[in-house]
Write a protein that binds this DNA or RNA. Structure first.
Length: 267
DNA sequence: ATGGTCGCTTGGCGA
């Protein structure tokens, strides 16, 4: 089973890119973030035609929006609200084998890394704190050891020094500040989540999933960050056989600024 | 310190 997560930055504009993703990667499940489409205008039929008729979506007009689209039936679908807001940042579903999937979009956090003067950054820190509490509750459940869970998405934090183009130059840049990394790591640890991509690709290796649009030549500059993640529960670790970040997608026509990240789990 | 580019939507916000 192959699972992909991708911040598409408008699902309607990226339909042909999704078709190319399907052609090249052949995933079973695709999790999307920043769909930027209210449920009424989500391209349900177009995505079903690509082979993904089972869909759980949570969208709003213009901003945010998450989805899970699948070849396999989805049950127990729903959305979860965070930080007292209803801004469509989390949708979840369960696959036929019982695997629970969460597609999450953590707030970017604005430009100034100070919660006292930047409410977007305060929101992001609160979200990370709440994610730790939620994960802690999941991990404390009686059957947590055998639970098959996957959390994917644009988590908007690059935790490792090798997850950014320059650790030193990004220490005060939102997405890589020490406070964010600390809360991000705590959220991961509390939920006993395993960073599936780093299980496969060594932490010494530089790895990015996002390159800004504000660059005349993103590939040459290569000032990327790994903002998109796939976390799995302990029960799924033995099944994990592959993980890939599809850098080439950043060079496709009409690209998203994020690229797809995928894992393979042996059924 | 600033600007650079996208997408949604038509002025400006969010990333």
């Amino acid at each position: 089973m192959k699972i992909v997560t991708w911040n598409v930055n408008s699902v309607r504009l990226r339909l042909s890119n999704l078709a190319r993703l399907v052609e090249e990667l052949d995933p079973d499940v695709i999790c999307l973030q920043e769909t930027k489409a209210h449920d009424d205008v989500f391209p349900t039929a177009g995505i079903a035609a690509l082979g993904y008729p089972h869909q759980a979506i949570a969208g709003m007009k213009s901003y945010n929006g998450v989805a899970i689209v699948s070849r396999r039936p989805l049950t127990k679908t729903g959305t979860q609200h965070w930080c007292g807001k209803e801004d469509c940042r989390h949708v979840y579903a369960t696959l036929p084998d019982g695997t629970e999937i969460h597609s999450v979009y953590i707030p970017a956090g604005g430009d100034i890394p100070d919660p006292a003067v930047n409410v977007k950054f305060a929101h992001k820190l609160q979200f990370l704190d709440d994610l730790a509490i939620w994960g802690g509750a999941l991990a404390a459940k009686p059957k947590a050891k055998t639970a098959r869970r996957i959390l994917v998405g644009d988590l908007n934090v690059a935790p490792l020094e090798t997850d950014v183009w320059s650790h030193k130059q990004l220490l005060k840049v939102v997405s890589h500040t020490p406070i964010e990394v600390e809360k991000f790591n705590k959220a991961q640890a509390s939920g006993r989540w395993i960073d599936a991509v780093r299980e496969i690709i060594p932490s010494e290796q530089r790895l990015y999933s996002w390159w800004s649009y504000r660059s005349s030549d993103w590939a040459a500059a290569d000032k990327g960050r790994r903002l998109d993640h796939i976390w799995i529960s302990e029960a799924l670790r033995p099944s994990l056989t592959a993980a890939t970040i599809h850098r080439a997608a950043r060079g496709w026509d009409i690209p998203s600024d994020h690229v797809p990240v995928s894992i393979t789990l042996e059924d």
